[in-house]
Computed example of a mutant assay.
Amino acid sequence: MPLHLLPRSLNYLETVARVGSIQAASRALGIAASAIDRQIIALEELCQTPLFERHARGMRLTSAGETAVLMARRWRADEARLEEDLRTMRGEQFGTVRLGAMDSLANSVLPDLIETFAERYSRIRFSVDIMTPKEVAHELEIGSIDLALAFNLPTDKSRHVLWSAPLPLGCVVGVGHPLWGAERTTLSEAAKHPLAVQSRALPVRGYLDERYGWLFDQAEPTLVTNSLQFLKQALIGGSYLAITSQLDTLRELEEGSLFFVPLADKNLRPQTISVVVDARRSLSRAARLVGEALSEMLPASLLRVSLSKKRDPPTPIRVLKT
């Protein structure tokens, strides 16, 4: 049974902050709105400061409220870890692993990971959130996730890196593109072709803007999207080129529907990919198993793609006219 160690007032506070109003929290918790309001008022009196700004359309956290909610979420995370540790001590292979990861892995590494654990450890559950690297760093800091799988995380003494590797940039193209099968290319050459790019909301675009923004001045992108999955489908047609890493298109490279051309520019700095945990908190047995699995699966997948021989383009499907 759940331990339910989080004080009632902090539970109500965190719920109101998450759903935006006392009425919405009442529906979510099945508790009378008046009871939730009384608990929050009592907590504000105890703290001697308002925790919410009350508006006609809902509740907004004050700075003090944000601090209190942060504590509540850490408390909840620690409660979950305690419950899992106790189960481990009783010999149960059990637990929920909270993982923050990148959208680029949603059709490759992550499904493989879930499938592997479903077969080997059926009682280990997953909570996987797709986040930006900035969001991952924040959630790891407050303890709401156990493991982070992210690009370009800066070094921090509070983080422990289980595995990390450089991710060289290259041009990804589909069947029929002039660069399909090329040994290497350059950014200047890439700029001669119609570009498909991720929007600035996504990690790799910010990375490219910061270091190679001139590329987009020289060649305005033909296609901009905030969906990596849509971008890859557009590339498969062969009309566009995207600058990214092999990991962003891992499944499609393995299947042969896309091709990766390394960039040969001097001083071109690669991205990084890392599996990271909070060094200040102990990992549950389940989270350790997941961290170990990711640290094996990711390099194996990258090596498999790197060593694969160049494929001939698939034969185009002819549409017969009637």
Rank of each mutant, 00 (worst) to 15 (best):
E119V: 15
S122F: 02
L82G: 03
T88K: 06
F94K: 06
A106R: 14
H138W: 01
R76A: 14
R76Y: 02
K134T: 15
I124P: 04
M102T: 15
I124T: 07
P168H: 05
N152V: 01
T96Q: 14
R90S: 08
D103W: 11
T88I: 02
T96D: 09
L110T: 14
D85L: 12
R73K: 10
V161Y: 04
A106F: 09
N152M: 11
I142Y: 04
L167D: 06
L110M: 15
E92P: 06
P154R: 13
L105M: 10
A150D: 04
I142T: 14
S104D: 10
L110Y: 14
T96C: 14
Q93S: 14
E92W: 08
R76V: 05
S108P: 10
E84H: 08
A77T: 09
A148Q: 05
A118L: 09
G95C: 01
I114Q: 12
P154M: 03
M131I: 01
T88N: 15
F126C: 01
I142M: 03
P168G: 08
D146E: 09
R123H: 11
L99I: 15
R125C: 13
V136W: 00
L105D: 01
M89E: 09
H138T: 07
A150Q: 01
I145S: 05
N107H: 12
L169N: 01
V172Y: 02
F126V: 09
S122A: 14
L169F: 07
D129C: 02
L147V: 11
G170V: 14
P111F: 02
W163A: 13
R159P: 03
L162T: 00
M131R: 12
L147K: 04
R87D: 09
V128A: 01
D156F: 07
L149D: 05
R81P: 00
P168Y: 10
T96I: 12
Y121Q: 11
L153T: 12
T155A: 13
G100D: 15
D146W: 01
G95F: 05
